[in-house]
Design a protein around this nucleic acid. Structure first.
Length: 296
DNA sequence: GTTCTAGAAC
DNA sequence: GTTCTAGAAC
């Protein structure tokens, strides 16, 4: 098993079974950018199970399939997905650290771009939910809509493109009409789901830094009445600016050709709990949930 | 993302 | 004593 550079700018790095390998800025990887630590990532391969555990040691973010690993956090990695480190989002060292894991078969020697993950890591879970007919509520040639597996309100859907797009940071101006379509489908689903009650308010949008891979637009009723709404993180992800309205994303794509960098917004998830209607601060989740039941 | 649980908060 | 949260593990 070895780690192969997507751009073939350096020799593959051997991954012996169970032996930790540390990679980062070095002569071997030809990475020069100081934002990448000399010990950026630690990789431990498991040959029999054909995956590797990737741990971020450096302070700056590294990603797997566009999702941040986080410092001192671990992710498992299987198949041919790409591994990105911070500096390929920068200038001079563009894509120098895109790597493919390869188990040695010729067919798996991948293209330089990120490929569809075969990983069973939780962050890939939406890919299987997409095709789960028990969750699916709408499908056309461009989008699939599923019920959120753990709804945070009475009505909570995810609108996802059929095309494999990892997240909003992977969007460009060519996706403008797709985003318009996702927004329109979302509004239709919302209308259809509760046409007996036109007072039910909905919001349509994206998380600033999603946890799950595969682009998904939330369609969520504003009652937030659900047993799956449990934590401060849940609450703040839907009621602070961490929740970015679909219209804002669409506007940014149409005018700038890309979305704003919102990585710093993870801080908002630690905000004090406030009612989304009257903005009263509540001490804890049980009190918040009690309060929003009858706040008008 | 969720689940589990230790220990903080009450 | 119980309730609640935050962090680790998955």
């Amino acid at each position: 098993m070895y780690l192969q550079c997507c751009n073939h700018t350096h020799e593959p790095i051997m991954l012996l079974d169970g032996v930790a390998v540390t990679i980062g800025r070095s002569a071997g990887t030809k990475i020069l950018d100081k934002l990448c630590s000399r010990t950026q990532l630690q990789i431990v391969a498991n040959h029999s199970k054909k995956y590797a555990m990737v741990k971020q040691l450096g302070a700056n973010p590294s990603q797997i399939d566009g999702i941040n690993i986080g410092q001192d956090r671990k992710c498992d990695k299987k198949g041919t997905s790409s591994l990105k480190s911070r500096e390929n989002m920068h200038n001079s060292q563009k894509n120098k650290t895109s790597e493919n894991f390869d188990n040695g078969t010729a067919a798996d020697v991948g293209p330089p771009r990120a490929t569809v993950s075969k990983s069973s890591h939780w962050s890939q879970g939406l890919k299987s939910s997409m095709t789960d007919s028990s969750l699916q509520v709408y499908k056309d040639d461009r989008v699939i809509v599923i019920k959120d597996k753990y709804p945070k309100a009475k009505f909570h859907f995810l609108v996802m493109p059929v095309e494999n797009i990892v997240s909003t940071v992977h969007l460009n101006s060519a996706h403008a009409s797709l985003l318009d379509h996702m927004w329109k489908v979302g509004r239709d689903i919302a209308k259809r789901s509760c046409d007996d009650d036109t007072k039910t308010r909905f919001r349509y949008g994206y998380h600033a830094v999603p946890s799950m891979s595969h682009l998904h637009m939330h369609v969520i009723s504003q009652d937030f009445d659900s047993p799956s709404l449990k934590t401060k993180k849940h609450w703040n992800s839907f009621t602070t600016e961490y929740f970015v309205d679909a219209e804002d994303i669409i506007h940014e794509i149409k005018t700038e050709g890309k979305v704003k960098n919102r990585r710093h917004m993870t801080e908002l998830l630690k905000n004090a709990l406030r009612c989304h209607i009257c903005h009263t601060e509540l001490k804890n989740m049980p009190q918040l949930k009690k309060h929003i039941k009858d706040c008008r």
